[in-house]
Design a protein around this nucleic acid. Structure first.
Length: 236
DNA sequence: GACGCTCCTGAACACAGGTT
DNA sequence: AACCTGTGTTCAGGAGCGTC
């Protein structure tokens, strides 16, 4: 975190999350699995400047402890968490998100491919609190996916309520099921509020729709694991 | 020490179709 | 639009072994 040189947020091109012509990188990452998504985001965080190489060799075991997949005090190259990260790195390499160069006797050199679009608003901005307070460790993959989609949809302005129509969701490469699970998880974690809204616009169908409002400010405290289908407010 | 590979099993996922 | 259910596919976990 400190070594990344970043201060408040990680900024990604909008093309990372949204693409009219096919599954955007974020969707493809989600399909590679939760570990791949989290490892990639952490690698992007850690490689601010071109050529986006990880300046300090970090083993899969180190990543596993960093992301909460391995709770041991020391790196354990044999743990399930380490293997999870190893698989994630292999799939990221296979799909062209990173390039791993083996170095005999040392951990692999990792070069991260950042998504290069037009780099203009709306961006996908990710608060550093996601890592600082351990939210990256506790949020399930679908919740992280929905969070990034909503950050793009509201263009980083969390005073705005947003509705993400089904046809828009498809441009994010998002299935209805993933969307429903992700937003529910975010509500449970206290990172999102939702309400039903009747549009005033005559041109729109007179049908209730859900509008969402992100609450990233809730990330300003240490994340805690919560049981599925159990609201955060009941944790106390 | 770090990592790749195989096998088996169960979980998680997307998708389609239907209902409210 | 939102939600539910059934089905087929993909991926992860555990254990073990081998390579560099």
């Amino acid at each position: 975190m400190r070594e990344s040189g970043r201060h408040l947020s990680v900024q990604l091109d909008g093309a990372f999350a949204f693409d009219d012509d096919g599954p955007p990188p974020l969707s493809r990452l989600c399909r590679l699995g939760e570990p791949a998504l989290k490892v990639y985001l952490t690698l992007v965080l850690a490689t601010r400047k071109a050529p986006h190489q990880l300046f300090r060799g970090t083993s899969a075991a180190r990543f596993a402890r960093m992301l909460g997949y391995d709770n041991a005090e020391d790196d354990n190259p044999k743990s399930a968490g380490t293997r999870k990260v190893q698989r994630a790195l292999a799939s990221l390499h296979r799909e062209g998100f990173i390039v791993r160069t083996p170095r005999p006797g040392r951990v692999d050199l990792i070069e991260v491919h950042h998504v290069a679009g037009k780099f203009r608003p709306p961006y996908v901005t990710i608060p550093l609190d996601l890592w600082v307070y351990g939210w990256i460790n506790v949020l399930p993959g679908h919740a992280l996916f929905a969070y990034l989609v909503l950050r793009h949809a509201c263009a980083g302005d969390e005073t705005r309520e947003v509705h993400v129509a089904p046809y828009i969701r498809s441009a994010y490469g998002l299935s209805d099921e993933t969307w429903a699970k992700g937003t529910k998880s975010l509500v449970r974690f206290g990172l999102l509020t939702e309400r039903l809204h009747n549009p005033d616009d005559r041109d729109l169908p007179r049908r209730q729709r859900k509008v969402y409002k992100l609450r990233s400010s809730a990330m300003g405290s240490v994340a805690t694991v919560i049981e599925p289908d159990r609201p955060r407010s009941e944790e106390a």
